[in-house]
Design a protein around this nucleic acid. Structure first.
Length: 415
DNA sequence: TGTCCACAGGAAATACGGGGGT
DNA sequence: ACCCCCGTATTTCCTGTGGACA
């Protein structure tokens, strides 16, 4: 192709993109990119639509005690991801602290975000950092030391202290240790009026807890229900207003996205992601946002999720996945047992010069893959032919090959 | 009815790397 | 530089088990 042709072609393409802009303001698709005041505005619009009304009412009645000078008890909040727990709570607590400031009531609140899993040590360290009680440590300092630092930092503070612990169940390993500290030890050592807000996304959360801790948490429960389709429609409309031109969205699109999202998870963030992807696809195709594009966007989002997952997974996990894929290829019915998978995994490791793990460890890898829903496994007894996991790959068509390819190329880069 | 397969999955032990205190 | 402690990853050792088969 001649240079001039390329030139005109590219210019044409760019012009086309400019003309067919659908997304006016991309930032409104991603809360991270919004500045505080914009976030607040979006939130208030959502609350104005009476979404999360009941929850806010509960919160108000619980914390009204502070304004009366009482000491409200701790609180447990349950709700799946993307149901607006964090947002609602931060909004509410901000408001509350403003009110307290007016009334000269000393109140301090801290938001400890544990949205990615971490051990007890890390969680404590993060808390300490939040309170300016300590710097960040990798390791090497005892839990005891960390706790003492937090305590000394807080000894002089007299007012209310609200600790908003987001996603508590992400504390791996010594969760009891962490909670025991917060619930039993900390209140005794400091004079502040401590109120814990524990947020979790599993309903059965307090069940497998040290009973002593459980009894000390005189918990007031508040449940955030998943958004229903109507709520999601409100939320999506606000985003459409801010980020897109309403004309470019076909009728029914919002309803469809809301329906899909509420059916699956009621997760607002995912609903917005779906809207964003659809708009992006529409922009690329130079059309309006149509119902078919929404479907495309959904499958594409799914695929992206899996591929990112695989790309960033530790080598051993990738190798295990590759093993499963290769073993599955050799069978007719698509299901394999642990033994076959393990053999294939060993072979794979040999090929890429990775030290294979023991069978025991491999089993754990399989369960991890199951958690990520890259495969499904269940234990199955085949009578005298033993007990084994039945491993089934049922990813969307074509994705398995893509994943396999991605794993292979990941390993080649390393060698 | 008992046997026994081929693992599951818990517990404890070990290895390792890295950071703090002195 | 030395020692000690911690978190993480993995291994070793172990007990448990559903049901086909004899």
């Amino acid at each position: 192709m001649e240079p001039t042709n390329v030139r005109t072609k590219i210019v044409g393409q760019i012009q086309h993109m400019v003309d067919s802009t659908i997304i006016k303001n991309r930032r409104f698709f991603d809360d991270e990119q919004l500045i505080k005041s914009e976030q607040l505005a979006v939130l208030e619009e959502i609350f104005n639509a009476n979404v999360r009304d009941a929850e806010i009412k509960e919160l108000s009645s619980h914390f009204a005690a502070i304004l009366r000078g009482d000491h409200p008890c701790h609180m447990a909040i349950w709700g799946k991801t993307g149901t607006g727990k964090t947002l609602t709570l931060s909004y509410f607590l901000n408001l509350l602290s403003e009110m307290c400031l007016d009334k000269k009531i000393p109140l301090r609140y801290e938001h400890l975000d544990l949205s990615n899993p971490r051990p007890c040590f890390r969680a404590l360290n993060d808390l300490a950092c939040l309170l300016n009680a300590s710097k960040r440590y990798q390791k090497g300092i005892s839990l005891e030391e960390m706790m003492t630092r937090i305590e000394t930092k807080l000894t002089s503070y007299q007012g209310y202290l609200i600790l908003f612990i987001d996603e508590v169940d992400n504390v791996r390993r010594d969760r009891d240790n962490f909670l025991t500290f917060l619930v039993r030890r900390l209140p005794q050592k400091i004079s502040a009026k401590l109120i814990l807000i524990l947020v979790s996304n599993r309903l059965d959360w307090p069940d497998h807890l040290d009973p002593r801790v459980k009894s000390f948490l005189k918990l007031n429960e508040l449940i955030f229900k998943p958004y229903n389709a109507i709520d999601l429609q409100h939320i999506l409309r606000i985003r459409v207003e801010k980020a897109l031109d309403r004309e470019t969205v076909e009728s029914g699109v919002i309803e469809k996205i809301a329906a899909m999202a509420s059916r699956e998870h009621g997760d607002a963030r995912k609903a917005i992601a779906l809207l964003a992807k659809s708009a992006y696809l529409a922009e690329k195709a130079g059309t309006k946002v149509t119902l078919t594009l929404v479907d495309e966007a959904a499958t594409e989002l799914d695929r992206d999720r899996y591929l990112t997952l695989v790309r960033s997974a530790p080598p051993q996990l990738q190798a295990a996945m590759a093993g499963v894929i290769e073993a599955t290829r050799r069978t007719k019915n698509g299901s394999i047992g642990t033994g076959e998978a393990y053999d294939a995994y060993r072979r794979f490791c040999q090929g890429v010069e990775l030290r294979p793990l023991t069978g025991r460890a491999f089993g754990d890898l399989i369960s991890e893959l199951d958690i990520y829903s890259l495969l499904r496994s269940r234990v199955l007894s085949r009578g005298r032919y033993g007990r084994t996991r039945e491993i089934i790959l049922d990813l969307p068509q074509g994705l398995t090959e893509k994943i396999h390819g991605r794993i292979l190329s990941n390993f080649e880069i390393q060698n």
